[in-house]
Design a protein around this nucleic acid. Sequence first.
DNA 1: CATATTTAAGAGTATTTTATCTTATTTAAA
DNA 2: TTTAAATAAGATAAAATACTCTTAAATATG
Lengths: 145, 145
Amino acid sequence: MKALSQVGKYGLRAILYLVAYPSENSYMSIRQISDELNLSFHFVTKIFRELTAKGILISYRGPSGGVALARPADQIMLIDVVKALEGEDYFDKCLIGLPNCGTAKPCPVHEFWKEMKTKIQQNFTETSLATLGEKIRSQEFRLDD
Amino acid sequence: MKALSQVGKYGLRAILYLVAYPSENSYMSIRQISDELNLSFHFVTKIFRELTAKGILISYRGPSGGVALARPADQIMLIDVVKALEGEDYFDKCLIGLPNCGTAKPCPVHEFWKEMKTKIQQNFTETSLATLGEKIRSQEFRLDD
DNA sequence: CATATTTAAGAGTATTTTATCTTATTTAAA
DNA sequence: TTTAAATAAGATAAAATACTCTTAAATATG
């Protein structure tokens, strides 16, 4: 089940690296992130520009510049990042693509699918980047292959 | 959450129409299906060729030809169609795209995502096309806009 | 001030997905 | 046996997504 585009996958991995290995009171360069995760530097840069424009990251140019979280990691929820990367309507889509699929005139799998989306949305809403960063730092979880 | 490609969405809607409005002991033409659902005839034809090749549909050429289910609708499960259209590895994908994401070296959202995929897989495994066709025939559920 | 380092912006390219079109083959029925 | 109706096959086109590249702007530091 491919739930995220490449932009979503790369963006999440990159921001999680930033969260997991924060440079104390300073910016981390995109080059370091893309190198560590073996992602295209230019592609990550483009994705991060979007996250910066959406107020999730802040960026600073010049030597010792880079990117950083705009808020503390425990105040950025997974759902914020996913919606920023995949669109605000991420959880509003009908499984079989019907426009305005809802309780009024539902598709045959509407109820079940709504239930699943709600569960996922809840989890993403409760999960902060801090929690995920912690997991990665614990070495029991990974961000690359 | 875009869980299915256009092929998956169109293919599901088209096969569900076939299930919901079966022509007794005969084939339904792809033209009728695509017309009714406002889908591209050629695109549906291509998708159905795949379902025929995979043994989910049977087809017959010539006048009064068309397509039909290869087995009774209660013996074709939603998961069969989804896997035929989206790939057998549909439920094996890591949310953030890590290869071989598993219990051994999981990504930070592995456990939760596995749980969700399992729930969806279970539902799709239990849900037959007959059940969905029934719903559509009841007029309380729709296949088009 | 000159230089090096970094992100910003957006143009450009490649690949994949989606959709269309053409021709061939099969088959029923006039 | 001719014709029309249907799917099969695959080439082609269009659009979306994924990725790359170039230039500009900002900024720290020697």
